[in-house]
């Protein structure tokens, strides 16, 4: 998968960096059926990690209960303008993607 599945923004304000990310993903639970009554196979992101400067800031474990095209936001202290951040995801089919952003 190409990395354009992720949009990430990190903004520093009052010594706290707020990270906001949007990921394009179907997030299928595996419990839904299509028009013909066929089960739509589960396809969802299981793990999202965000790291900066070799440190893991956040690890998220998700089920198919997270909405389609997931949104994620979190905050951390100690970031500096220009620092780079990397967000990666892995899904239950073994697909993955990552994207980098700099704090502004």
């Amino acid at each position: 998968m190409s990395s354009n599945t992720i949009k990430i923004r990190a903004k520093l304000s009052d010594d706290v960096t707020t990270v906001k990310a949007l990921i394009t993903h179907p997030m299928e639970t595996g419990a839904r059926k299509d028009k013909d009554g066929q089960v739509i196979p589960a396809h969802f992101i299981q793990e999202v990690t965000c790291e900066s400067g070799g440190k893991t800031l956040l690890t998220a474990y998700w089920s198919g209960g997270v909405s389609k095209n997931p949104y994620l936001s979190f905050k951390f202290a100690g970031g500096n303008k220009g620092d780079s951040l990397k967000l990666s995801w892995k899904d239950n089919k073994g697909e993955s993607a990552s994207e980098e952003a700099t704090i502004d």
Binding site: A31, Y61, G65, S67, L72, F74, F76
Partner: peptide, 28 residues
Amino acid sequence: IAMNNPAPLVASYDLGEGVEGFVSTRIK
């Protein structure tokens, strides 16, 4: 956790050092 969902646990977040007690997501 969404108590009445078929699979109640929706998401779990491990917070690294310096990360604030704050997460925002959209759930089903």
